[in-house]
């Protein structure tokens, strides 16, 4: 979700017959709900998949600062500005926690950043959309963070200890994010006709991309099945997406806003909302780099990194000089 379509590098799900003793013991621990920790033995594919998944998640948090950073200088009240700034700061913090978790797997943060900057590593598709009005701040908090929570709560129970613990910390902070978004939407929906139109427009633009965040149906996906066996993916994309829709439709109704899906209807038999077809070509295009903001987002991160190189190097030089002095003394 924040980590979409993570490759495991495997073409079939591992069976007991495929496994040597240490992998069998490893799988048994996972099946028993025992956490895997940094120094434990793990199959290479598990390690690599986790590195991809966690780092993709981390990259998403870091890039995710940008769509909101776009409006923090224009927040319409000092209170809203403070709250948005705190949220953006949380996102930086989440990125940091996640990079820390990824680094326990034997990769450095600089390596992960290099993969992001080169375009090799992905981040969540949702952050390639532009924030065009203040109402987008509401829509993002409500829909995007709301979706993130749905994905992240199960991950608090995932098999890899450092990742699960990072998720616990993240989840504590995330509920504030969703609420502040919904609170913005409430203010707008109850405001002037222009504000209400602003809110509706934001919902129109963010609804479908938010549903796409969960990724295409993965019923046939080997990657998803393997990740489920490893307990680093606990629910299918469709299950999570359905949860999001079921939860969000009543919230939209309360706002008096219309979800931009003429096929949306409640199915009394199943107790779930049915919704219209998602345009997966749009999603694939965004992943390929053809979203509205892919180039700008990446450019901004690359520029910050490159322009900051002299600063980072200076601090290393200073540390070296003074470590040397200490050694001599």
């Amino acid at each position: 979700m924040y980590a979409q379509q993570v490759e495991t590098g495997l073409s079939t799900v591992r069976t007991t017959a495929d496994m040597a003793d240490d992998e069998r013991a490893f799988q048994a621990r996972i099946d028993a709900g025992v956490r895997i920790e940094a120094k434990d033995w793990m199959p290479d594919a598990y390690r690599k998949t986790l590195i991809r998944q966690i780092s993709q998640h981390a990259h998403s948090e870091i890039v995710g600062q940008l769509p909101e950073g776009n409006w923090v200088t224009r927040a319409p009240t000092l209170k809203r500005k403070s709250i948005l700034l705190a949220k953006i700061q949380d996102e930086a913090g989440h990125g940091l926690y996640l990079y820390s978790a990824a680094e326990t797997l034997g990769v450095t943060r600089d390596e992960l950043l290099a993969a992001l900057h080169s375009g090799k590593a992905k981040y969540s598709s949702i952050f390639n959309y532009p924030t065009l009005s203040w109402a987008d701040m509401g829509a993002i908090g409500w829909l995007v963070d709301g979706s993130a929570i749905i994905n992240q709560i199960p991950l608090c129970r995932c098999s890899y200890g450092p990742y699960a613990r990072a998720m616990v910390r993240v989840c504590k902070e995330e509920s504030f994010h969703a609420r502040q978004g919904y609170d913005i939407m409430l203010s707008l929906a109850r405001g002037t006709p222009e504000q209400k139109a602003m809110a509706q427009d934001a919902l129109n633009r963010w609804w479908w991309p938010s549903l796409m965040m969960f990724g295409p149906s993965d019923a046939e996906s080997v990657n998803s099945a393997q990740s489920a066996q490893w307990r680093i993916k606990l629910f299918s994309n469709d299950e999570l997406r359905q949860r999001m829709v079921d939860q969000t439709v009543p919230q939209a109704e309360f706002l008096g806003l219309t979800i931009p899906d003429p096929d949306l209807r409640f199915n009394a038999k199943t107790g779930h909302y049915e919704f219209g077809a998602i345009d997966w070509t749009e999603f694939q295009n965004v992943l390929k780099g053809n979203g509205p903001c892919n180039r700008e987002r990446l450019r901004t991160r690359v520029d910050a990194w490159e322009e900051g190189a002299w600063f980072r190097e200076a601090l290393v030089a200073h540390a070296d000089k003074h470590a040397a002095v200490k050694e001599v003394a």
């Binding site: 870091i62 890039v63 600062q65 940008l66 909101e68 950073g69 923090v72 200088t73 000092l78 209170k79 500005k81 403070s82 700034l85 705190a86 953006i88 700061q89 930086a92 913090g93 990125g95 940091l96 990079y99 901004t300 991160r301 520029d303 910050a304 990194w305 322009e307 900051g308 190189a309 600063f311 980072r312």
Partner: peptide
């Protein structure tokens, strides 16, 4: 400082800058 959101030379700097910006905003109020 708000304009620097997500654009600092290191992630830890982004955190620190937004901390300072938040503190100052609180004092403003």
């Amino acid at each position: 400082l708000c304009r620097l959101c997500g654009k600092g030379p290191a992630l830890e700097e982004d955190m620190a800058l937004s901390n300072v910006a938040l503190d100052l905003l609180g004092q403003t109020r």
